[in-house]
């Protein structure tokens, strides 16, 4: 399942990325495989989204979140 498919308040564990280049940027920001992420909220217009990861709040667009495969 993709991170972008979660609803507000849902959690998941990162297992893989589908885009290599994006994965570097995401991992630098703390989105590592094995890390638990929680969807905090969506922007008023539904995109981008804010997630809680590694103890802080990260925001990213849905198309960026869609490269994160979660369980």
């Amino acid at each position: 399942m993709k991170l972008s498919q979660l609803s507000q308040g849902e959690r998941g564990t990162i297992v893989a990325f589908t885009d290599l280049e994006m994965s570097v940027k995401l991992m630098e920001m703390g989105c590592l495989p094995g890390e638990v992420v929680e969807v905090e909220r969506f922007a008023p217009l539904g995109d981008p989204m804010a997630i809680r990861v590694a103890g802080y709040q990260l925001c990213l667009r849905k198309n960026e979140a869609s490269v994160i495969i979660i369980q």
Partner: peptide
């Protein structure tokens, strides 16, 4: 274009 950024407290 990227939009991966921190939302500070």
């Amino acid at each position: 274009s990227y939009f991966i950024m921190e939302l500070p407290v």
